[in-house]
């Protein structure tokens, strides 16, 4: 791999943005690697949108530095490698979806409009291509926003709440599209979302922001593996709890065993030999939602353990 390929697509150092007395970003340090889908999480006011707006040159940081596609934010050259959709996109209402993409292609200096039907089809808007956008639903606006972000064939695409306002089938299609863009088209996708389960399903890595600072960062698989436990549906439960001692807790009709994966097979063998009926045994991890609530200090929902 060359140095360029290995270099992060986004590098943020000590990034601070204040609005009066409010610190939207507070010395944020973040490095987003090339490739895959990267999620930026955080409660309202965590600084996600401010970060995206700075990266896209819409606003200026109060302090700190940020680079995008190896260039300083605000420069045109790196932005020509970047597509974006910030919040629910809006368009001139008198234009059709096809005209919107043609207009943006001209804005971006792209010769020809041959790719427009392809991207309209890719986001599921072929049939609405020649309808005026004033009649579009929020979900259709989002789809057109993604097509608009892709029309310039970027290497990096930044999506702010890409599934906002979409119905469940639309969310599923968007999720598939995002993963396909990253894994089939080789784009780096950076997205922000409030839907944590959504992020867990679609993202390879995540960063959790709180009060303008980075509080957790890593691969989703690594983050959710921490706190992993073996869930045993057994009878009698009390016998297993007694055998596990402090490593076991009751979870309804089952037992959660806090042991390393390597000790799992031996435990199951030992329980079977001791005459315990084992109906089901599976590893469960902590999901992003639990991590999110822990890291941001928000009030946690009662049920935080889900199947991994």
């Amino acid at each position: 791999m060359t140095a360029e390929i290995e270099s992060p697509v986004i590098q943020v150092t000590g990034l601070t943005k204040t609005y009066g007395s409010v610190r939207a970003l507070d010395g944020l340090d973040l490095s987003i690697p090339r490739g895959g889908v990267y999620g930026v999480l955080g409660p309202n006011g965590a600084g996600k949108s401010t970060l995206f707006r700075i990266l896209l040159g819409l606003i200026r940081p109060t302090a700190g530095t940020a680079t995008i596609m190896n260039g300083p934010v605000g420069d045109i050259a790196p932005m020509r490698l970047t597509g974006s959709m910030i919040e629910t996109p809006r368009y001139p209402p008198f234009m059709t979806a096809r005209q919107v993409l043609s207009w943006l292609a001209l804005e971006h200096g792209i010769a020809g409009t041959a790719d427009i039907p392809y991207w309209l089809e890719r986001v599921g808007l072929s049939e609405a291509a020649d309808r005026k956008v004033r009649g579009f639903s929020v979900g259709m606006m989002q789809r057109l926003g993604v097509a608009a972000a892709l029309i310039s064939k970027p290497e990096l695409i930044i999506l702010d709440e890409p599934t906002s306002g979409m119905d469940p089938p639309g969310i599923q299609e968007m999720r598939a599209l995002i993963r396909s863009l990253a894994h089939d088209d080789g784009l780096t996708v950076v997205l922000a979302s409030h839907q944590l389960l959504e992020v867990q399903r679609v993202c390879d890595r995540v960063a959790i922001l709180n009060k303008g600072k980075l509080v957790r960062e890593g691969a989703v698989s690594e983050l959710t593996a921490v706190g992993e436990r073996l869930r045993l549906s057994v009878s009698p439960v009390d016998q297993v709890l007694a055998a596990l001692g402090t490593k076991g807790v009751r979870d309804g009709d089952a037992v959660l065993a806090d042991i390393p994966r390597t000790e799992g097979p031996a435990l199951i063998r030992a329980l079977a030999e001791a005459g315990v009926d084992i109906h089901e045994a599976r590893w469960v991890g902590t999901d992003l939602e639990a991590i999110f609530f822990t890291e941001t200090g928000a009030v946690q929902a009662p049920e935080t353990i889900h199947a991994g």
Binding site: L56, G57, L58, I76, M79, R80, T82, S84, I86, P89, R90, Y91, P92, P93, L104, E107, H108, A148, S152
Partner: peptide, 17 residues
């Protein structure tokens, strides 16, 4: 004023001076 009215500056302002 169209880009303010239609909220379309964010679509175009990043890629041109």
């Amino acid at each position: 004023a169209g880009d303010y009215r239609w909220e379309t500056w964010r679509l175009i302002s990043a890629r041109n001076s």
